[in-house]
Design a protein around this nucleic acid. Structure first.
Length: 278
DNA sequence: ACGCCCGCCTGTAAGC
DNA sequence: TGCTTACAGGCGGGCG
């Protein structure tokens, strides 16, 4: 599942590979990938635009265009961006959008489960953010700079830590994998109520989130057994080899050797060490 | 406002 | 072997 480290890996790859390239034409298959606006409008706004940079906010990719607009990409569960050398390269199954570039390459949006989406937006306001993203909380790396920022986000609320950390309105960028990993690194249970954390525990959690995300970015993100996350060139990440609890039910906790447990919670899973996490 | 649950999807794997 | 069922989970929407 692409979360902040996977999206950041893609952002860096995109910035290096397609920065300065011009979009020649856009082809969209199916009705779900472009659903916020008419496909013809999106295609017309992209055609002829040059890529001036690539930003990221939470799990959203922002492809900045010289038209002063932004192509927003969200991969959701199974979306991929793949760069092809040319139109002759066979398209993977579930290719829903193809952006032809002026040097002949193609940027392809592939998404079996069709949860992902593309849209073009005109950023507005002080932060030059697309209005569709106005509800996002502080980016888990970019804006959550100090423990105090996390303290404000958690705000002494009664909600459970994992519920808050994966709520993109509270903190943007964490999903199930990195919430579980960061909570383990902080020694905190997924179901701790935020309003029971001490100042020290908030600081520990803040440090754990940053360290976990930065280590995952250095490893090129996580590719799970389903192989759904790969980079622009189709290469897998390596951070899954360093997961301490996520997907490791019954295996030894690297910290204390107790078996990792899996809890069913809010219709989702949470992996945690019952001995190390309080 | 908060805390839930559901619907959206398809590929994979487990179970009978 | 072949079918059914469960599961993966981000996010928007809806409900109490």
């Amino acid at each position: 599942m692409p979360e902040l480290p996977e999206v950041e890996t893609l952002r860096r790859g995109l910035a290096a590979a397609v920065g300065g390239a011009r979009i020649v034409s856009v082809e969209v298959q199916g009705a779900r990938t472009v659903r916020r606006q008419p496909v013809e409008g999106l295609a017309a706004r992209l055609a002829g635009a040059r890529v001036d940079g690539v930003h990221r906010r939470g799990k959203y990719l922002l492809v900045l265009l010289d038209t002063a607009e932004v192509l927003v990409v969200h991969l959701r569960m199974s979306g991929q961006l793949r760069l092809a050398g040319g139109p002759a390269e066979p398209r993977p199954p579930h290719t829903h959008a193809v952006l032809a570039l002026d040097d002949g390459r193609e940027l392809r949006f592939v998404d079996p489960r069709t949860f992902g989406e593309l849209f073009v937006s005109a950023p507005a306001g002080r932060r030059r953010l697309p209005s569709e993203l106005a509800g996002l909380g502080p980016d888990a790396l970019g804006e959550l700079r100090t423990p105090a920022h996390l303290g404000v986000a958690l705000g002494g609320r009664r909600r459970r830590l994992k519920d808050l950390l994966t709520d993109q309105r509270v903190v943007a960028g964490l999903g199930s994998i990195y919430a579980d990993e960061a909570l383990h690194a902080a020694g905190l249970r997924f179901d701790r109520r935020a309003d029971t954390l001490s100042v020290d525990e908030v600081a520990t959690l803040h440090r754990a989130i940053r360290r976990t995300l930065l280590a995952a970015i250095r490893a090129g993100g996580s590719t799970l057994g389903d192989g759904q996350y790969v980079d622009l060139a189709g290469r897998a990440g390596r951070y899954q080899q360093r997961h301490r609890v996520y997907g490791r039910e019954g295996l030894a906790c690297p910290g204390c050797r107790a078996p990792v447990e899996r809890a069913r919670w809010s219709g989702r899973s949470a992996f945690f060490c019952p001995a190390c996490q309080r």
